[in-house]
Design a protein around this nucleic acid. Structure first.
Lengths: 200, 200
DNA sequence: CCTACCGATCGGTAGG
DNA sequence: CCTACCGATCGGTAGG
């Protein structure tokens, strides 16, 4: 996953991986049967870690606006901590495979889509609880907050801009505040959203 | 540029390019001297086309809020028209080279940074003309609108979501409206921002 | 899990 | 601009 996030899923060659693991090429190869299967296994492992580090923690807080915010904060934190060497695994994999047909692309599509869907579902939940306005369109809202986190990953990985995470955080807060009903606003203020200390 | 935007700047091999151009490998090679020089030449060509298709058209409209909006509309249109096979050349190149040191990465950084800077400069111009509020922070504003266009490219290239461009457009309009002063708002309404017809 | 090998392709060079 | 070639590496296989 580290190699793939930094050098790409194509750059994750069987020979290189075997060398790093001090195995023979054919010994490693036998575990997967083809390069495509190695790539699929890598994508699946990355998805599992995403669930562990981002999805699961957010599932422990109450549903609606609070959970939506928790999902986005956990995601930003996961990108900021650089869980993988090359930053967000799926951002790298998306860009690499968006133009290549096949099962690897399909897997990446399914997984990233399920994350966007989860954001939309939580917007709807917040609306039905009266925490977000009825005029908010869930796909539009998910598009915008998803954009902020991906942009932070881009700005940090390419421009090495450490402020990117604060910008994404600020943009998301503003978006949530604008969309919240008075009772939703009260919920957002209730938890001071346990800020991580960061030196200037 | 088409090959690089779809298969990556590493996937743009000298052998493949020579075959497509019906030249010998060494004949083509002699024009560049190294693969890195071929990559740099490709990045520079893509930058030239970005200037032609996005930057220059926007430079012909009045400065400030109107030009800022024109820059963003031209950019979305350029991404939507898929000027290159793989979508936005710099989005693909960024993701591929963000983890690889060298002159190609440096060139990509310089060029994408100059575009973000141009957006910030126009926010400041709009502020000094009294078209955008003084409380708007130019880097934050540029971060957010830049995010929307990159997200549209991502959603279209990976998820084949045609609505992505409308979502980016809507998000940008809302952001501009929120940041505009009354006189800025009047400017935004003055031009009905010549919408491209699109069938449902 | 290994050694030994396959044909294809990589970036690059020699020499014309 | 070309042919002919270099060593390295690719995904994958044969056979153990």
């Amino acid at each position: 996953m580290d190699i793939a996030s930094a050098e790409g899923l194509e750059g994750l060659t069987i020979g290189r991986l075997a060398r790093e693991l001090r195995m023979s090429k054919s010994g490693l190869f036998a575990h997967f049967g083809s390069k495509e299967e190695l790539q699929l296994a890598t994508v699946d492992s990355a998805a599992q870690i995403f669930v562990e580090k981002v999805v699961r923690p957010a599932m422990s807080v109450e549903r609606g606006l609070v959970r939506l915010h928790a999902m986005l904060k956990a995601w930003i934190s996961y990108v900021e901590r650089s869980v993988f060497r090359g930053g967000c695994f799926f951002a790298a994999a998306s860009a690499e495979f968006d133009g290549r047909p096949g099962s690897v692309r399909k897997r990446i599509v399914a997984l990233t889509k399920s994350w966007v869907d989860a954001l939309e579902v939580e917007v709807r939940e917040a609306q039905s609880r009266g925490e977000m306005g009825r005029s908010i369109q869930p796909p539009q809202f998910a598009f915008e907050v998803h954009a902020f986190v991906q942009e932070a990953n881009w700005a940090y990985q390419l421009l090495r801009d450490r402020h990117a995470f604060d910008r994404a955080q600020a943009a998301i807060r503003a978006q949530l505040r604008d969309a919240a009903t008075p009772s939703g606003l009260a919920l957002l203020r209730r938890r001071p959203t346990a800020r991580v200390k960061r030196k200037k």
